[in-house]
Amino acid sequence: MAESTLARPPVAAEGGGSRKPRVARIAPRPGESRAAWILASPFLLLFAVFTVWPVFQSLFMSFTDTRRRDLRTPFAVDFVAFENYARALSDPTFLKAAGNTAYFVVVGVPLTLAVALAAAVLLDRGITRLRAFFRLGFYTPVITSIVAVAVVWRFLLQPDSGLVNTVLGWFGITGPNWLGDPNWAMPSLIAMAVWRNFGTGMIIFLAGLQGVPYMLHEAAAIDGATGWQRFWHITFPLLRPTLLFVSVTTAIGYLQFFEEPFVMTEGGPLDSTLSLAFYTYRQFSFGNFGLASAVSYLIFVVIAAVTVLQFRLLRENT
């Protein structure tokens, strides 16, 4: 894979699309264009029907009063302008879900990045043996089904018979009823999300660290910089594009968190773990397709905004 340089994450690299594809050729062939369309058409057909169409249909539905009974006649519905959006924004449950989602993202993303970066740096600089072994172990949770690990974590976090509180008990700490306490339920979900997801960031950071020249560290060491100074002034700035990439993809995933509350808390206690995606799913199950579409579009807008914001924040000061 000669093209996929690691210092330059794919999203950023593809964004502009300014790089010309390599087409050194003898002469354009008459059959070329036809062949291209034959190769492209199966994908484009499926893509148009199952990706492009739903994106527009979703926007349309969000401005209508579509309900489950309109399922067979999705266009025989009334236009209600911004009523669904207004209804969502004035629903206290929606606002609660929005706050919970913000909590999950604002605490969860930096924590995931910090753990991922710490693991990557320790593996890269701290040890010489067993590197692949640790890397494999730390990465394993990423490949597992969130539903399955959520079931397991529900057991681990049980107040009396759970492993977590038993281990805390060895140190004389009485652990709370993690998932049953409105104050502890969200931190529990965040802990599980960090546990499951930091492996992806770690692998990408490890690849990014390969791009930090050893020479720079040597030069700084000769000038008397400590290890800590070298990390903040050499490694960290050079990792900025990688950091941006990991933080954007992690935030996009976390903004849609759904399986964790669905399996572990069913949104409770007292809606303290109800997420925006879960709220959307609930409105969908109640048959309020128009309202659910409006909320899903709001999530989309927030995802786009958060992505732009992160590009701004992390691009500056370079």
Partner: peptide, 10 residues
């Protein structure tokens, strides 16, 4: 980057 939650209803 379009999230699944946007398109699942339509």
């Amino acid at each position: 980057m379009i999230p699944g939650v946007v398109t699942f209803i339509p």
